[in-house]
Design a protein around this nucleic acid. Structure first.
Lengths: 177, 177
DNA sequence: CTTATTTGTAATTATAATTGTTACAGATTT
DNA sequence: AAATCTGTAACAATTATAATTACAAATAAG
């Protein structure tokens, strides 16, 4: 996973937590193992990303039985750019790391500084695009794609989601036997 | 080198060829070994990037003695976005490649499609920023940073550059002995 | 037309970055 | 006290990328 897939995984996590917050209020804390199964990876990988999301005040975690993580704010108030910035710890989408160019070379001696500003502008524009999309928009879009009409009363959505969750857990049990 | 450093290296190459085209017209073909020394890497690495630049009609290459590559168009007519697109063969700055998310999961099943559009918008905005900068602007900026006043007649610049080239080659000879 | 030079690319090795895994202390609930 | 879960370190495995070696094909110059 590079920065990009990390962003996608982080958004996956956030969307999952958003779903719980919005439609399963009795179960807002989701543990890393559940998330890992959803993403199809290892719980520690998830916890590492959660750690970054926590630093960015996007989630809150709790240890102990029935612990896990929950979303820290309303999904409508969370912009994708915040998720992006949370996982982008290097600070540069365009990370320049080719070994020192020849110092005698006219071009090599200055190209990095010369490109720096342009690349920073590029990254800014990426963040701007991402800031125009909220987590709620993504969550609703996902539900729609899953065939769930988000215009209907949320209680009905909750029921459907609980049913799907049940289905999933049953199928897991079948796999084990 | 990732896509980003490849872009930086490709721009380095282009700026070098631009310099030769603009100020050393008697020597527009530069071979991969020279370029490699300037970038401080292996000639084959350079030839691979040149190959992409060639596919994008940004350079022309010639084999045999005194061969090498030259810039295919006026630096003022080349936008950085063209260089970016030339090396970005995967087509996506935000390449999603985390293993299949759990198909039973509501989120995992749809998040990739859901994010796709936003990520494509982000990449478009990057290209737009890069399209606003020409290779000539970069080349001039580099020369200025190197202390060469690009407002003076180009013949004087040519002299200075030839002198610097000489210096560089002398220093190489010294290193060998 | 032979020799030297340079490209173009395949094949391989080396290196670096990332992910996955194991392990365990610390926190929290029951 | 026992069980569950987080947080993180340490290490192994995997993957991606770059570097290197090698050599056929093209071209230029004598």
């Amino acid at each position: 996973m590079n920065i990009n897939s990390q962003f996608v995984v982080a958004t996956h996590i956030m969307a999952l937590l958003a779903g719980h917050k919005l439609y399963m209020p009795e179960y807002t804390y989701v543990n890393s193992e559940m998330i890992a199964e959803s993403v199809n990876t290892n719980p520690v990988v998830i916890r590492r990303i959660l750690s970054k999301l926590r630093d960015a005040d996007l989630v809150v975690s709790k240890s102990g039985p029935n612990g896990g993580s929950e979303i820290a704010r309303q999904p409508s108030k969370i912009k994708l750019s915040e998720i992006y910035e949370a996982v982008d710890d290097k600070g540069t989408l365009f990370h320049m790391h080719y070994g020192q160019p020849n110092r005698f070379c006219l071009i090599g001696g200055h190209i990095q500084e010369s490109l720096k500003e342009t690349l920073e502008n590029a990254e800014e524009s990426v963040k701007k695009v991402l800031s125009k999309k909220s987590l709620l928009q993504i969550a609703n879009d996902i539900l729609e794609r899953a065939g769930i009409d988000t215009v209907q009363p949320s209680e009905e959505i909750s029921k459907k989601l609980r049913l799907m969750k049940q289905d999933y857990e049953n199928s897991k049990l079948e796999l084990q036997t």
